[in-house]
């Protein structure tokens, strides 16, 4: 059977906020997701993930949209393809624009994911959209305090050693809890590793 052609991607453009991240930007429309992934008393280690998006000149990108998709604290995804399924009330999806923070940060309050399948280190899947990206970009966030697991991770192993640090968020202890920081650089010497998913 001949296959249908995949619908081409087009840029998210600069004006997505009132439909995709409306509550964050103050529009009168309900959001399906935001920067807070924690619902109720979901078990797991509370963490914050924050970062910025920078363009090829090193300028902050204030009109990007970042989506994260992650497993729960035991490494289970709330999706039917995960045979174990999430056993907690944790959806695992967050979405935030970089247009409301004075420093153009994305900020996610979530729980630290567990190892997904015993071989992969804990990680968060990241999808990046913005004006000027005709096709979204995929990357991952790993954790600096998981050095041993990161060493064994097959995806990190497929990345040239000198570029791996573009995927590893650095843990900072703050009075409010653990904050992991990682900037996304679209271009340049420290260009973030993007994946062909």
């Amino acid at each position: 059977m001949s296959k249908l052609r995949q619908t081409p991607s087009q840029t998210v453009g600069p004006f997505f906020a009132y439909a995709l991240t409306p509550e964050q930007y103050g529009y009168d429309f309900k959001s399906i997701a935001d920067g807070n992934l924690i619902e109720g008393d979901v078990p797991g280690q509370r963490i914050r993930i924050e970062g910025r998006v920078l363009d090829g000149k090193g300028d902050l990108v204030p009109d990007a949209m970042i989506e994260i998709w992650q497993a729960d604290g035991e490494g289970r995804y709330a999706h039917p393809a995960d045979p174990r399924g999430s056993n907690v009330a944790f959806k695992g999806f967050g979405r935030m624009g970089t247009g409301t923070d004075p420093e153009s940060r994305f900020i996610f309050d979530t729980i630290k994911p567990g190892s997904v399948d015993g071989t992969q280190a804990p990680h968060i899947n990241v999808t990046i959209f913005m004006r000027g990206l005709l096709l979204h970009a995929y990357t991952r966030i790993y954790f600096s305090d998981e050095a041993a697991a990161n060493t064994r991770d097959p995806v990190l192993a497929s990345v040239p050693a000198e570029r791996r640090n573009t995927l590893i968020a650095v843990r900072n202890e703050t009075p409010a809890g653990a904050v992991y920081r990682l900037d996304i650089r679209m271009q340049g010497a420290d260009e973030t590793v993007f994946f062909d998913v």
């Binding site: 497993a71 393809a81 990680h123 991952r140 097959p154 995806v155 590793v193 994946f195 998913v197």
Partner: peptide, 8 residues
């Protein structure tokens, strides 16, 4: 960088 599809 190509990624081998996993549960993620």
């Amino acid at each position: 960088i190509p990624i081998r599809q996993s549960l993620s």
